[in-house]
Nucleic acid binder design. Structure first.
Lengths: 200, 200, 200, 200
DNA sequence: GATGAATGAGGATTCATTCAT
DNA sequence: AATGAATGAATCCTCATTCAT
């Protein structure tokens, strides 16, 4: 039992460190983020962090990969959603914009990795795999929408990929807080990418 | 004369260093880019770089700001272009995608700065100013296109900003070489953002 | 307790470093004294020194100011001494010559700072304050000696200042070890500065 | 002829550099004095200085040794002077104080070398030789003064050496401009070192 | 003769990481 | 489990010195 309690406490502390890392890395970059600063922001010592993560590289990897897995479910939820294809796309955009608006730290970390994909090949690879899983799923829904006459008929995969780029750009460029009206605008504009048939 | 020759030679060398910096910074980040590596890639010594730039910070600033100014003209050229609004938008997208495809280094540097805007406030500020100049101009053209019935009537500024995000995302996510067909796809998808009236 | 032990150990180590600095700085100058050499002479690493002193400037400042404070007491002890003014002056000279003979490192450091007072204004300022405190006290004793008919009547402050110069010069010019007879000579000569009445 | 003219111009320029060095070295120390700063203060380039002096070490050596030779004559002039021994000593003090007051740069350089005699053994050696020549001559005059009943009878060489220390200390500690009254005081006090018989 | 350009050697400082407590 | 202390390996930057013009 004690085992379990300890284990849980350990996981919680690990999580706290990871959370701080997710915030710090995109703000200051990999080399610009020091154990010392990270530790101070957590009220612990630098050496302690290394009890939870073998090295700075590992901390970075975990800070990138673990949240990525956690986002997989909500990000891909639209695939099993209810309603017409267009409805599902609309609600997906809604989810994505919301994620972009309120998880800017992690999104920024993703972009940091993508921007330096040569430097962080393993992490970037995981992102591209994620992007691919995502676009494959989205392509299906788009194709359904086109078949149903809700969307104009463009190359569905192209559209999916374009939308993925768009959502990344939105997260990158906008730094406003989640309550800003800009996010609403991005929602409306994003929908156009799918070329919905006008008189819907 | 000698003066001029020397001055010109100096500028050329400076340009070479800047070019290398534009490539290296986004690949390895600010701290990850060392004078030593930069110098070796240029076949000169690290100390020499410091004859042309006072410090690493200055080198970075110049690597960001000078190309930004150089891109201003082609990036904004669409505003004075010929043809219908839709034609001008199409050719603008063409230019942008071409820039994104072949100047990925600089675009990546832009994104690096935007992603770490707290760390590089001066540089990020310049980018936001640029983005603003750009979207203001684009908003006008979009409004013209809507007035002419070529584009569906959405909030023109929102569309402009959304497109700006899109083009950034495209540059960020795609790492393929300029001849890849993916760029063509992005061109087609990007146009949808403007919601062109279907039977055009 | 552990706290106390650690704190004490820390102070002791700090003291060792300071001691080495007091020796090294006047021998090789500020720039000529490197962390590497200092560290090697202490059998530690250069980085360790920086755990105890924030920078080379701080190390220098502490090496100058802390011993200065420690010398204050013995240097100024003559003011509260017993005996006639002349006796007190004689014993003061004795103390000073002894200090000069056996603390040549620190005295040399003082002179290094005075010689480069423009470069080390803060440290030099402290020395001038010390010199002033000192001459003010000495002036009083001299005046007493003059009133008592033990010393000829010259401007007491001038004499005090002149003696201060003398003792500095003695420390600067003589490099012999403390057992050399030269120090005894300086003791005798120094006394003359006070113009003692002959048939005492 | 051209030869001679050039040679003379060369000597003049060399002299200018030396002059700047004599000022700069004691102000900033050996390592703290850079060719760049020296050159800028002269309105020439750093490389030019090296056309006149082989290395920084040589420049330093010349800056120390050449003025030393030039001071030899006035410094030792008292030995051939006219008048009673006491008169000659008085006028010597006068000369020395004047030198100390108006050639503080060089005096400070001397002290810099003496203070770091282990670092600059050759230059320090020359100074000690100079000091010795000087004290030997002064010892003779003092002995004459004592024989003539003008000075009390102390060990003449001790007195000479003590005075030499004094004059160094005076130059070191006082930073006032030549017109300050402090110098006058030092003149009066210095004389006491020689223990003049009171009713003179 | 003078200098701008270039650089190698070196120095202060930072930091991830180790280890004893 | 947590950390303070210690350090080696960088890294930025400086500067004396060389050399081509």
């Amino acid at each position: 039992m004690a085992r379990t309690v300890n284990e849980q406490a350990r996981q919680e502390k690990r999580e706290l460190i990871l959370q701080a890392a997710v915030t710090a890395f995109p703000e200051n970059g990999f080399s610009g983020t020091t154990f010392a600063v990270l530790a101070k922001s957590l009220g612990i010592s630098a050496a302690t962090i290394l009890l939870y993560f073998e090295s700075k590289e590992e901390l970075f990897r975990c800070a990138v990969l673990e949240p990525l897995e956690r986002f997989r479910q909500p990000f891909l939820a639209f695939m099993q959603g209810e309603g017409t294809p267009l409805d599902r796309i609309k609600s997906m955009i809604d989810v994505h914009i919301r994620i972009a608006a309120s998880n800017s730290s992690f999104l920024r970390l993703v972009q940091y990795v993508l921007g330096q994909h040569q430097r962080f090949p393993e992490e970037a690879e995981a992102m591209y795999r994620f992007a691919n899983d995502y676009t494959v799923g989205l392509t299906t829904v788009i194709a359904e929408g086109q078949a149903a006459g809700q969307l104009q008929s463009y190359d569905a995969h192209e559209v999916a990929w374009g939308y993925f780029c768009f959502i990344q750009g939105v997260g990158l460029v906008n730094t406003d807080d989640p309550s800003s009206p800009v996010w609403d605008g991005m929602r409306r504009v994003g929908l156009q990418l799918f070329a919905p048939v006008t008189n819907q």
